[in-house]
Simulated scan of single mutants.
Amino acid sequence: MSPTDRSGSGPGTAEHLGMRPGMIVMESGYDDDVDQDVRDSIVDLTGEELLDDDTDEVVDVVLLWYRDGDDDLADVLVDSIAPLADDGYIWLLTPKRGRGAHVDPSDIAEAASIAGLSQTSITTAGSDWSAARLVGRKSSGPKR
């Protein structure tokens, strides 16, 4: 993405989302309203097709499209953790404020907390989607 392109779409979107060649990405919540440019950017950079959410593979990233009114967000996040590699993360994509089915940031924070996740950053992903990066909480030390 050029320094002046802040839309979150285009050839640099995958880099903006921290994707690298060879990463395995699972997609969940696909519908006809998703941003195809975001999807294409990820496939182009990683060199891998996006996997469906019924995959048995361990994945580096879960690309989760979520709209207000979809299933319970905390439950969806818990389900999204299962296929993640130890250092994997979730990009939760929700419609931007002012768009239909927008998800309130407090709802995201609450659901992430219930699922045992922490939000580390927020960015844009295309013209209609916001993206929140969610990671598993690190333990404070060895378990006894």
Rank of each mutant, 00 (worst) to 15 (best):
Val78Gln: 12
Thr13Phe: 07
Thr120Lys: 02
Trp91Ala: 02
Leu84Phe: 03
Leu117Cys: 07
Asp52Val: 08
Pro142Ala: 06
Asp37His: 14
Met19Glu: 04
Met19Tyr: 12
Thr120Val: 14
Leu84His: 09
Pro95Leu: 03
Gly29Thr: 08
Asp33Ser: 15
Leu17Val: 06
Asp75Tyr: 14
Gly126Gln: 04
Val62Gly: 01
Pro105Thr: 04
Leu93Cys: 10
Asp107Gln: 10
Lys138Pro: 06
Gln36Val: 14
Trp91Tyr: 10
Leu77Ser: 01
Ala112Lys: 08
Ala82Ile: 15
Ser41Phe: 06
Ala112Gln: 00
Leu84Gly: 02
Thr94Lys: 03
Gly100Thr: 09
Glu15Met: 10
Val34Cys: 11
Asp68Gly: 14
Asp104Cys: 02
Met1Gly: 12
Leu134Ile: 06
Glu48Cys: 11
Ser139Lys: 09
Glu15Gln: 11
Trp65Tyr: 13
Gly10Asn: 04
Leu17Cys: 05
Asp107Trp: 06
Leu117Trp: 07
Ser80Leu: 10
Ser28Gly: 08
Thr55Tyr: 08
Trp65Lys: 03
Val76Glu: 02
Leu92Gly: 06
Gln36Asp: 12
Ala125Lys: 00
Pro83Trp: 05
Ser28Asn: 06
Thr46Cys: 09
Ser7Arg: 12
Ala111Gly: 01
Thr94Gln: 04
Arg137Leu: 13
Arg39Tyr: 12
Gly141Pro: 11
Val38Gln: 07
Gly29Ala: 03
Asp44His: 08
Gly141Val: 07
Val61Pro: 08
Leu77Trp: 12
Trp129Asn: 00
Val58Gly: 09
Tyr30Leu: 00
Ala82Arg: 12
Thr123Cys: 14
Asp32Leu: 10
Ala74Cys: 10
Lys138Ser: 15
Leu63Ile: 04
Glu110Met: 05
Asp54Leu: 11
Ser118Cys: 08
Asp56Gly: 03
Ser121Ile: 07
Ala85Glu: 12
Gln36Trp: 14
Arg133Leu: 09
Ser113Glu: 13
Asp53Glu: 12
Pro95Val: 01
Val61Gln: 05
Lys96Glu: 11
Met19Thr: 05
Trp91Ile: 02
Tyr89Lys: 00
Val59Leu: 03
Ser130Phe: 09
Gly29Met: 08
Tyr89Gly: 00
Ser140Lys: 06
Asp32Val: 04
Lys143Phe: 10
Pro3Ala: 04
Ser113Ala: 07
Pro95Phe: 04
Ser80Trp: 05
Gly12Tyr: 03
Ser41Thr: 05
Thr124Trp: 10
Met26Ser: 05
Ser130Pro: 01
Ser28Pro: 05
Glu110Ala: 15
Ile122Asp: 01
Asp70Ala: 10
Met26Leu: 14
Ser106Gln: 09
Asp52Glu: 07
Thr13Pro: 07
Gly10Phe: 11
Asp86Ala: 15
Val62Asn: 04
Met1His: 06
Asp37Trp: 15
Trp129Ser: 01
Asp70Met: 03
Ala101Ile: 02
Val38Ser: 04
Ile81Cys: 13
Arg20Leu: 12
